[in-house]
């Protein structure tokens, strides 16, 4: 029987020096791109490289980063999750309904809301995973269905209304800064770290890469492919739930129309970060940098005074360029 390690040749093997070098090189390109952007905007706008603006950027990329971490798992197994924006809205209004209940202490309400938000996300993710894995259907179409289900559910639960007036301590928590770094961003960063450990040092992580590379081989090796696939979607759903809580803590409202098209930014962050849409190759650290690139672009282009439509065009261009770069990187790393 093959070992799991052999099934995932592209997973970074940190024990081997040769592979460590390749691992560094893999991230060097995207890191360089980010650096160039930062230098460019620093020259283009006097406001870009200021403490206040850096805080802004960190605040603004947090939600996308959380979604993109979950998305990385799904894309690594060769799937896609189009429902995360809607699931964010659904989890948000469920948590919002819970947190505005009367007759409980603030602590109880916040705990229940966190569980409700996370739980909603996990349930949606489990449904995505179970349905697509059980019937072997493309996750593209199943999660497209969930995109509608979750949006409809969010509107239904919230009666299409914005939910507001959360406990004071919850609203305060969202605005805590530690040396100018938003606490919500630090939590997202912690999530990246956990995801990195899971993907690189656990059997689960090995299997995620393995399934993306060669699902049949993993199955023939006697592993429960369905378990790992459903697990990846559940993680993605949980991240959507977390992102919903971050949205609530930042804006102090829940909105059933929150998160429209957020899945596209999350997918873009993952792809710009060098994870292959075909699965099996990529990393969550690349995703972190991908999220930074999208956030820095959105921020910097406004600071430069570019109009909205130009901004949208440039963001689209960057995504396409990233995929072309990834095409060449994939070719060179296999030859």
């Amino acid at each position: 029987m093959q070992t799991a390690t052999n099934l995932a040749p592209d997973a970074p093997d940190l024990k081997s020096n040769r592979l460590t070098l390749r691992y560094v090189l893999q991230h060097a390109g995207i890191g360089l791109a980010l650096l160039i952007l930062v230098i460019f905007f620093s020259i283009a706008s006097e406001h870009f490289l200021t403490a206040g603006n850096i805080t802004n950027i960190l605040t603004q990329i947090t939600i996308n980063l959380i979604l993109a971490v979950g998305m990385t798992f799904v894309i690594l197994i060769g799937g896609i999750d189009l429902s995360v924006g809607s699931v964010l809205a659904f989890a948000g209004v469920v948590a919002g309904k819970v947190i505005t209940l009367s007759g409980f202490s603030d602590g109880t309400l916040i705990t229940m809301a966190v569980l409700a938000g996370l739980g909603t996300g996990v349930i949606c993710g489990l449904m995505n995973g179970l349905i697509s894995a059980w019937w072997g259907l493309p996750s593209f179409i199943i999660t497209l269905g969930m995109l509608n289900i979750a949006r409809g559910a969010a509107l239904h639960v919230a009666d299409a209304r914005t939910i507001y007036s959360f406990p004071f301590s919850f609203e305060e928590f969202g605005s805590i800064m530690i040396f100018g770094v938003p606490i919500l961003f630090l939590l997202a960063l912690a999530l990246v770290a956990v995801a990195w450990v899971v993907l690189n040092f656990t059997v689960f992580g090995r299997m995620v890469y393995g399934i993306g590379n060669n699902e049949e081989a993993v199955r023939l090796a006697g592993h429960n492919v369905m378990f790992y696939k459903v697990g990846a979607f559940a993680i993605c759903g949980a991240c959507a739930g977390l992102a919903a809580l971050a949205y609530m803590a930042r804006l102090n409202i829940s909105s059933p129309i929150a998160g429209i098209a957020f899945e596209l930014d999350a997918i873009a962050a993952v792809i710009i970060g060098g994870t292959s849409l075909a699965g099996g190759r990529g990393s969550v650290l690349g995703t972190l940098m991908g999220a930074f690139i999208i956030g820095v672009l959105a921020n910097g282009l406004i600071l430069m005074g570019l109009n909205d439509f130009m901004r949208q065009m440039i963001t689209g261009l960057v995504i396409i360029v990233a995929v072309i770069v990834d095409y060449y990187r994939a070719r060179f790393s296999t030859t």
Binding site: S45, H47, N56, T59, Q60, A298, I302
Partner: peptide, 9 residues
């Protein structure tokens, strides 16, 4: 997001 960036500029 958009307004925070406008305010910075």
């Amino acid at each position: 997001t958009v307004f925070a960036n406008m305010l910075t500029a």
